[in-house]
Write a protein that binds this DNA or RNA. Structure first.
Ligand SMILES: [Mn+2]
Ligand SMILES: [Mn+2]
Ligand SMILES: [Zn+2]
Ligand SMILES: [Zn+2]
Lengths: 136, 136
DNA sequence: GTCTTGGTTTAGACTTATTCTAAATGCAGA
DNA sequence: TCTGCATTTAGAATAAGTCTAAACCAAGAC
């Protein structure tokens, strides 16, 4: 995706496209990994002419989350990961490598609880978020 | 559950039943909430005649997890919760109160993705843990 | 073109959950 | 009773993330 398109994307979501935001957003959209804030800092810092602070990375990631451009992924305690794939999907964590893969929601509805031949599921967890309805 | 039963449970899992471990384990088994380490410390400290250190709470909870007596539950970044319900189940997080309820696995297989009339699901997430199988 | 202003970025301090360290404690067996 | 080893402890250390206060900067007003 071009820089212009990234700027348009940000504007469309009501986010002022600063240099730092553009390059962070560009990185997020260009990766299928589910990077931590620190991953983003490492990857993006060298692309920018100016210095990039940790605070800006967190500010920007939170900003993008609030704008609905990326989302948080919580698979382990103590570090939040970020994901520019906003389609309805779930995650497969390879316990060997720690890599996180996207699993489209349709596949899960169909193949649940076995995802497919390419994955050996050790365990899986469904976390629901919602409200309790008190109907007597 | 009586203290003797707790001690037997610990011994059966190869854990030496010290006073601290017994009371922490007893607390875990007696609650359906999914407490954090700090919740456990608060609740258990006053029951013990001696002081109870934060380190011991973490040591014991990790010990119980390794022994297969309790398990960790990760639903949000930055705090691990613990759960003595070792049956095959998933979790429903009430976003209003933060309370975590157990959902037996059978119910999910049947009612997926709607859990039932008593819950309004805002969103849910399935996290798989396993390995990638390279079959050509 | 300069001035003003509010949003953005920054470095570093701070907070909080968890782990680590090294010393003290306390049982179980010799 | 003595010894050894696991356990517990207080507090230091670590690490993710937030906060603060100052510096920066882009856009509009003049
Ligand atoms: Mn933590
Ligand atoms: Mn954190
Ligand atoms: Zn994803
Ligand atoms: Zn549970």
């Amino acid at each position: 995706m071009t820089t212009e398109n990234i700027e348009e994307l940000l504007l469309r979501h009501g986010v002022k496209p600063t240099a730092q935001r553009v390059v962070i957003c560009e990185y997020m959209i260009g990766t299928k990994s589910h990077p931590t804030a620190d991953d983003v800092l490492q990857a993006v810092a060298r692309k920018l002419p100016v210095a990039l602070s940790r605070a800006t990375v967190y500010n920007t990631l939170n900003c993008l989350v609030n704008a609905g451009i990326i989302r948080e992924v919580v698979t382990e305690p103590d570090r939040t990961r970020y994901d520019a794939n906003m389609s309805d999907h779930h995650h497969f964590v390879d316990v060997k490598t720690g890599k996180i893969l996207d699993i489209p929601a349709e596949e899960i509805a169909r193949l649940h609880p076995t995802i497919g031949d390419n994955y050996k599921v050790h365990s899986y967890q469904i976390t629901f978020f919602g409200e309790i309805v008190k109907n007597k």
